[in-house]
């Protein structure tokens, strides 16, 4: 939406290796805040799954959520485009602002939210349709009927997802016939086709081998100049490779009621989180002593 119309990424060759840590253009005066959460808590029924999350996600950066299993990373991610609305018992407490607008205000439509804030899931989930129809799905539900424009969108999105060269001769084949890594890139292309403002990624590479993972990471670097990306990952090396900022989540265990609640422990620039963590829990986690 706010994204100015840009030319498709011209490169058709493999993306260059991931940018290295020192080459990251993260300044201490960050860009526009895309997401702003304050004292965010998320409940499933009476169970409080996540508590007290306050963080700011900046434009054109890659923000990583790391932490042990059950710490609420995915839950927080899914509140950012209101996917948690699909779970009937889920309830959100606190503020979530997207570019200044409250995401959970009464008159906000989750449909409109999700058109701007796309999501890539842990397991590649292409539709049982052709490769072409998978990518064209989003533009079509947004009302695009013009064949020429759809062709353009499909080619541009597949090029952005670094999949075009592999599938350009079989666009009419089923999306389910692709390998795991290709299927995940197809899902990324499908998300990019609606030109979202933000791409949320929920462990997008956890089901993939290292080579496919590398391609997804390269791809994230390629597209981050145009999109804001939030990625949940179990893999700390991945967080250091791709992200500008990192949020470390952990689990609070209430031994009396035996409930486990996730919370945000520390949030900062990725180098700081991994090299100079301020919280002892973060330090224990990133150095591999726990988790």
């Amino acid at each position: 939406m706010e994204q100015p119309e840009q030319n498709p990424v011209a490169t058709t060759s493999l993306p260059k290796p991931a940018a290295l840590q020192e080459s990251k253009p993260v300044s201490d005066t960050p860009g526009v805040a895309v997401f702003d959460t304050k004292n965010l808590s998320i409940y499933y029924g009476a169970f409080r799954a996540v508590t007290d999350v306050s963080l700011t996600v900046h434009e054109n950066e890659i923000t990583a959520f790391i932490g042990p299993s059950g710490c609420g990373k995915t839950t927080v991610l899914r509140t950012l485009n209101r996917m948690n609305d699909l779970i009937p018992t889920a309830r959100v407490d606190g503020d979530v602002h997207y570019r200044g607008a409250s995401l959970y205000a009464k008159d906000v439509s989750p449909i409109a939210v999700r058109r701007r804030i796309g999501m890539v899931f842990q397991k590649p989930n292409p539709f049982p349709k052709s490769i072409y129809d998978n990518v064209a799905y989003g533009p079509r539900i947004n009302g695009e009927r013009n064949k020429g424009r759809l062709n353009e969108i499909v080619e541009r999105s597949l090029r952005q997802a670094a999949l075009w060269d592999e599938v350009k001769d079989r666009l009419k084949h089923s999306g389910l016939g692709l390998s795991g890594g290709q299927a995940q890139r197809l899902c990324i292309a499908r998300t990019l086709a609606v030109e979202p403002d933000v791409v949320l990624m929920d462990e997008p590479a956890s089901a993939l081998d290292p080579i496919a993972t590398g391609r997804i990471e390269d791809l994230m670097h390629e597209i981050k100049s145009r999109y804001t990306i939030v990625i949940v990952t179990h893999n700390m090396q991945q967080a250091t490779r791709v992200s500008d900022r990192t949020a470390f989540f952990s689990v609070l265990v209430d031994s009396k009621s035996d409930t486990r609640t996730g919370t945000l422990v520390e949030y900062g620039r990725t180098e700081q989180i991994f090299q100079d963590p301020h919280d002892s829990r973060t330090q224990a986690y990133v150095t591999g002593r726990v988790g």
Partner: peptide
């Protein structure tokens, strides 16, 4: 996950049902 993929693209419930 197929339903979720469709919702994540901004589809309404009717769309999800009819197209996916």
């Amino acid at each position: 996950p197929l339903r979720e993929a469709s919702y994540a693209l901004g589809a309404t419930k009717a769309r999800v049902t009819v197209t996916v």
